[in-house]
Amino acid sequence: MNEVNYPVQGECQCGQVKFSLKAAPKMVIACHCKECQKLSTSAFSITTIVNRNDIDITGELHETSRVADSGNTNVGKFCPSCGNRIYQVNPADPEMIKFKAAGGLSDTRMIVPTTHVWTSEKQAWVTIPEGVQEFPKQR
């Protein structure tokens, strides 16, 4: 695979929110929990973990918040026009961004999950690739 040239540009579905990923993600996680299935309207969601300094985001964002089963607060930022979830953050750890809009990047070669979490709630037809870390719940 060819090396990715950073920064990589991207945008939400309607183009009102733009982002620039300036460095490789620290981690790429596929989450199979029921909440992520609802969020993604699919079998799982992809979360790309990045440092706050490694991503620039411009455009108006709206916010939603919920408390996870772990007790952590999860603040979600999304485009008010198209509704695309852009990122999530735990206010207790604001330097770690859970970037949800990686599919909107112009180059997505770096978006390969190395870890699958909440596999206890995954859809029965989903097969986790051999050799990839998996956890029945959040690690």
Rank of each mutant, 00 (worst) to 15 (best):
D69A: 15
D54N: 14
A43E: 06
S81L: 01
N51A: 14
R66M: 11
C82H: 09
S42N: 11
V67D: 07
E60G: 04
T47F: 07
S40A: 15
V75G: 09
D69S: 15
A43P: 01
F78I: 01
G71S: 13
I57C: 04
N53H: 12
S65E: 09
C82S: 11
T58G: 02
I46M: 12
D69C: 12
V75C: 12
K77L: 02
G59L: 03
F78N: 02
I55V: 10
G76D: 06
K38H: 08
S81H: 14
N74F: 07
T48P: 09
S40V: 11
K77M: 04
Q37G: 01
K34Y: 10
C36A: 09
N74P: 01
G71N: 07
I46P: 07
I57Q: 02
V75F: 13
S65M: 00
T41G: 05
D54V: 05
T47H: 13
N51D: 15
N53L: 13
C82P: 14
T48M: 10
C79Y: 10
N51W: 04
E35C: 06
R66F: 14
V50G: 06
G71M: 07
A68D: 06
T41F: 03
N53C: 01
S45L: 13
H62C: 03
T73A: 14
D69R: 11
Q37V: 08
N72K: 15
A43W: 08
P80K: 10
K34C: 00
S81A: 12
T41H: 11
S81T: 15
I55R: 05
T58E: 12
K77V: 01
S42V: 02
I55L: 03
R52D: 10
E63D: 07
T73Q: 13
G76N: 08
T58P: 05
C36F: 02
L61G: 09
I49K: 02
I57M: 06
T41Y: 00
F78A: 05
Q37T: 09
H62D: 09
T47Q: 09
N72D: 15
S81N: 14
S42G: 02
C33V: 10
V75E: 12
C79W: 03
C33G: 07
T73M: 13
N53A: 14
P80N: 13
S40W: 12
E63G: 06
E35P: 00
T64E: 08
